[in-house]
Amino acid sequence: MPLDASSSTATVWAILRKECRSEWRTRYGLNAAVLFAVTALTAVTFAAGRMPDQPGMLAALLWITLLFAALSSMSHAFVREVESRTLLLLRLVASPTEIALGKLLFNLVFLCVVEVITVPLFLVLTGAPPVRWAPFLLILGLGTLSLAASSTLVGAVIAQTRSRGALFAGVSLPLLLPVLASGVAGTRAQWDGMPIDADARLLAAYAVALFGVSLLLYDHLWED
């Protein structure tokens, strides 16, 4: 459906603000995500101790923590609308594409908040060597974009299925493996003093491809 750009922007912005306000009131996803991240990091550092000389292990731990913190919460963006039967309200005020873009932006904001809490905690608890900030943040940012795009897409697609909880993890994991692999490789490379160009390019291409596919799919969602 052709969208009027200014009204669509206002609609997406309204949905983003609604999501942020709802999350702030209920702490539906944030509590779960932060709790998971803190528990996982604390348990690993208790068991394995600080590991400043193991950049490969550190990179894997960081991305596994971010990935599962995100997975534990981001499916709720759509599932909650279905379970509380508010999806109809959204469908009556916005197109599926506008709804999904609003949710995507919220998932991005959500992930950024989780990372603002998790990444410093990770660096302190694990005794990670000093990061090269520019490549580290580039890999983190592109990985976050891919994570948010894929979680939004999968969340939208499985929202009205019966076994959505199990489906979300099952469908998301294969989609997220390239993100996980490139994120780990790029994060390790920046600690090893190696170039990160190839991993950054792969993450960027993956994010763009996911976003493009999503835009094509979203308008056909929820057609009864």
Binding site: S6, S7, A10, T11, W13, A14, I15, R17, K18, R21, S22, R25, T26, S84, R85, T86, L88, L89, L90, L92, V93, A94, E98
Partner: peptide, 27 residues
């Protein structure tokens, strides 16, 4: 405008907040 028993609102929001959101989303 559609009124149907299937339509539910965000319970964590007030009546005004629900309608203001809908009005903003409608532009």
């Amino acid at each position: 405008g559609l009124v149907t028993p299937e339509l539910e609102f965000y319970e964590e929001f007030t009546a005004t907040e629900n309608l203001v959101f809908a009005a903003e989303a409608r532009g």
